[in-house]
Design a protein around this nucleic acid. Structure first.
Lengths: 197, 197
DNA sequence: AATTATACTATACATTTGTATTAAAGTCAA
DNA sequence: TTGACTTTAATACAAATGTATAGTATAATT
């Protein structure tokens, strides 16, 4: 990316802001109106930004500007609650979503869960946290997973020793779990926490 | 919001997905093409969705669909590292950003920091976490804050007792801090953690 | 039977929007 | 000065897009 002139920076900034506010890219004329410029002048700026790699045109679609470093977010459904240590409560109508950058969710099959309990507290997972779980991932010793043990689900650290799976809480007051009937649902890939009040 | 028909749900879902993928709303004809429908049919669906409050039209702009529950994200700059317990390292060029829903950042002045150290581990804040701090907030006992103590910065729990401020680590191996020269920089409002590998 | 809501097609028209062309003036470095 | 680049304007045209109209059909409700 070459250096941008002041005016080019301002135009790029405006495009960015406009998109953040309106969820759509501005038209040539909307940019022109903002800076009190002519259409041709804006065309020139867009052309320069394109040459410098800071802007992409999508054919001749309307509002067809795109930004190379655009951030994309996709909704991940919060499907239930994990009483970290024991059960998973399924939520009936999944109207709750967390929005995760597609850089993270790319090519993955994900869902999210609300955490209850303190069994993973020393790993930094506390009550109220929302965890994002990716299904069908390869898991290694020490990974944090959501697993089904005899039909009940929990968030635990995964360990395989001599072909036997152990699920350990990071909080020492809970014992490690092992069973012939353990199914790994998915692996933790993301966590968000909102502090309210 | 009234009940949506199956077809209306599908159309709404497509609009949502299209926007997530392309950062712009689809045109009437793009929707029509996706479902192999006529323009008029799509117009009908959009009209119904609008009546049911699930969709907003912005005048007669191109791609002028908007969604009432559209999620907006704004960049929050990651300004440095907090060696949770001691220093704050300032990062020179802030090219790192976290994107936070504007529902959270609304009307706030925020910045973000990378966490190092384990002094807040029992509160679920561990090394590598990115915390979002809001400046100029009113803080109450028990809130987690970023504070300057004699010029050095740290993430701690805030307590005021008899007009004296105490900053406590949740990890008991660190002592509480008190000083005549404590400045509260901001209050923790959000935390994100990405599990890599 | 009449009404209402849904679902769909086909076509025409008006507006919005991107693009091309031409022209002029300013800046900066070789 | 020349030349390259930037900045700006005015205008015209083509493509994309929203909107309106007219008509058919089905299902559920009154």
């Amino acid at each position: 990316m070459k250096e941008l002139t002041d005016k080019q920076k301002k135009v790029l900034q405006f495009i960015n802001d406009f998109h953040a506010d309106n969820a759509m890219m501005p038209t040539v004329r909307e940019i022109a109106a903002n800076f009190k410029l002519s259409i041709g002048s804006v065309q020139q700026h867009l052309k320069a930004l394109q040459l410098k790699g800071c802007l992409i045109k999508r054919g001749s679609l309307s509002r067809g500007i795109d930004l190379p470093n655009r951030q994309n977010f996709s909704p991940v459904a919060v499907l239930g609650t994990v009483h970290a240590g024991t059960f998973l409560e399924q939520i009936e109508d999944a109207n709750d979503y967390v929005y995760i950058n597609t850089n993270v969710t790319r090519n993955r099959k994900c869902f999210a869960l609300k955490v209850k309990g303190d069994s993973m507290e020393p790993s930094g997972i506390v009550e109220g946290d929302t965890i994002v779980v990716s299904q069908g991932e390869r898991v290694y010793n020490g990974d944090i997973v959501v697993a089904l043990v005899d039909g009940e689900s929990a968030v635990k650290m995964f360990y395989r020793e001599n072909d036997r799976i152990f699920l350990k809480s990071s909080n020492p007051k809970y014992p490690a779990i092992t069973s012939d009937n353990i199914e790994i649902v998915g692996k933790l890939i993301y966590l968000v926490r909102e502090y309210k009040g």
